[in-house]
Design a protein around this nucleic acid. Structure first.
Lengths: 350, 350
DNA sequence: TGTTAGCACTCATGAAGAGCGAGTGCTAAA
DNA sequence: TTTAGCACTCGCTCTTCATGAGTGCTAACA
């Protein structure tokens, strides 16, 4: 057999089996697994000594590690990666029958925000890990209607309603010379011409197509350029919804304060979280340990699942747990939950 | 001298002095303070033995405690309370000269939300404790304008803009039989009659004063009752802005995971936090340990400072730290910061 | 009468060492 | 190829011991 990306050659059936058993055991008990423990399983016919030889080989191949010279083995990052890619699917298929069709949403979840919030809570409650829902980017939604409501002589509130019912708003400073009638005209023009345009594109559309219209209908002395820039300077990003922020504290590997602290700080840092949880992939992605490319996450795994609207990826629901997480359970859970979210979300727009 | 609420009688000057020195020292070093430590201070002329006698008396009076029979003393809750009420002001006045006039807000803080958020961050950064700003209750603001924007045949978005520029919005289900023109009429009536009314009062005002108007101007077959209830069912509460959520982890008294966990969980529980941080008082209130009336807060002190708008209390900025917090520093800081918030907030509305 | 030196006593803390047990790698025999 | 046997390694836990910072009490002193 030829070399592959996993090392010098393929693993033997027995090695595969032992590796899987060991990782399963470690995930369950969070303690280094020794040869004796493995040999005691009913379905294992080999003696501890034989197992030891195999374990030494698996360690040489980089799938396992020891915590000290005479300890049992724990999976390495590479080990988990292999487990997730090659050992899980076979098991996974069998058990996936019992779909998690019933999630305990409270009676009526009418609005998207409530759906996201509850999904995050449900997921973290069911797994005891930390979950995050990355909301849709409102700027990708299409403009349904906009309003400018003056609240004082100089200040006004600009409101943008999207086709999904999301509302963006911000305060703006009115040009000195503007009249209520000008404002009304402006709002009418914008609503006429820009309904159905994605918020993020409003700015370029206006610059390209509407300067002529403005010239025709509005007084020339208004400094529309600056005003429009202010109006359309989008700053808000996707919203994040959390569940089980403190669940990390009950994971045995983070029993140590100095280990949890960076983790909790990470969770509180919006930019980092956004990056961690964003994915352009439809479907499900798993990142293990250092694959997350941040020191604080080096002992964590992150699973992102995509939810969609009209078939388009618009956000993710994610689970953050220790690298030793219950992948089997968690993956199928996340899979069903993201589908459930997609269903309900698309139900809203009917 | 007659008995007072602090015990059998007044404390002697020397007792007051020793108590203050001890608490100051404990706050600084977070370790039980012994007689020797106190007697070593320059301004103390008595021997350890004398101090010991006084300490024993102060303990009998309930101001001090021991961690074990032969340890130094630490302040009791009653001790802190006395310290804050009677020992602090004298010191406090002298040093308050150096006001914290310069808070490091980023260039332009234009909107209230940004102000609250930054205030919380600044406060937690400067103290290394956890801070929370309780935003104004939008429902107490006055209606400037409302809009109902249909987004599909059955759904619409209702938007309420307040005189402060705050925007409340929610999705509503439209009555089957309603026409766009009905909606327009309704919005016009509401804007005409209800501008300037506090959001929280809209419902009663409508029921009292507008049913006649509706009868006159709208078709009778519309089931306005249910619709209006839906429109005016306020659910959202005041917003909370956090700073330094994980700062508790660096406090020596919470080095133990089992001690921080309930604390962090508490911080994440909206209802509890809201209750903790709400206060109707103008000015500054301090609650020490069990005065907070929640198990998780029994080793914490909470300081609430009020910020106002046009002289009216509209929200609070709070600091949560261990009972042994640096009251002196923190109180003057919170005092100045809440005033700064008030200033900027009132500046916005000019 | 208030203050202080002296002294016996307490208790937390940290270091040192022993014993245990779960694990290993290696060797030699089946 | 598999396995029994064995020496060896570490991490843990428990105990013991010494140390030192603190106390309360008593008796003497100013």
């Amino acid at each position: 057999m030829s070399a592959n990306k996993w090392g010098d050659g393929m693993l033997t059936e027995r090695q595969l089996f032992i590796l899987r058993v060991l990782i399963d055991d470690y995930i369950k008990h969070v303690e280094p697994v020794g040869s004796r423990t493995i040999s005691k399983r009913e379905d294992i016919t080999y003696s501890p000594a034989t197992i030891r030889n195999e374990l030494a080989d698996l360690e040489d191949l980089g799938f396992l590690e020891k915590t000290h010279t005479s300890s049992g083995r724990i999976p390495s990052e590479k080990g988990y990666r292999f487990y997730v890619d090659h050992l899980l699917p076979s098991l996974f298929m069998e058990e996936n029958e019992m779909g998690h069709s019933e999630f305990l949403f409270t009676e009526k979840v009418q609005e998207a925000e409530a759906l996201f919030d509850q999904s995050a809570k449900i997921l973290s409650d069911m797994t005891n890990y930390t979950s995050v829902v990355l909301g849709p980017n409102a700027l990708d939604m299409k403009l349904k209607n906009m309003q400018i409501i003056p609240i004082s002589a100089q200040m006004a509130v600009a409101i943008f309603v999207t086709n999904t019912g999301h509302v963006e708003n911000r305060q703006i400073v009115l040009p000195d010379t503007i009249e209520p009638s000008d404002l009304e005209k402006l709002v009418n023009i914008l609503n006429d011409r820009l309904a159905g345009v994605r918020l993020i594109e409003l700015n370029t559309r206006i610059k390209k197509e509407l300067s002529a219209v403005f010239k025709k209908h509005l007084r020339n002395d208004l400094n529309m350029g600056v005003f429009l820039d202010q109006l359309l300077l989008w700053s808000k990003k996707e919203k994040l919804f959390y569940g089980g922020k403190t669940n990390m504290l009950s994971q045995p590997e983070f029993r140590d304060l100095d280990k949890v602290r960076p983790l909790l700080d990470f969770l509180e840092t919006r930019d980092l979280m956004e990056k961690l949880v964003s994915s352009t992939d439809k479907g499900l992605t798993i990142r293990i340990g250092t694959e997350n490319e941040h020191e604080a996450m080096k002992n964590c795994s992150v699973i992102n699942a995509s939810y969609t609207m009209h078939g388009k990826h618009i956000g993710t629901i994610s689970l953050i747990g220790p690298t030793r997480m219950e992948y089997k359970k968690v993956i199928s859970l996340l899979d069903s939950l993201s589908k459930e979210m997609t269903n309900r979300l698309n139900g809203f727009s009917k």
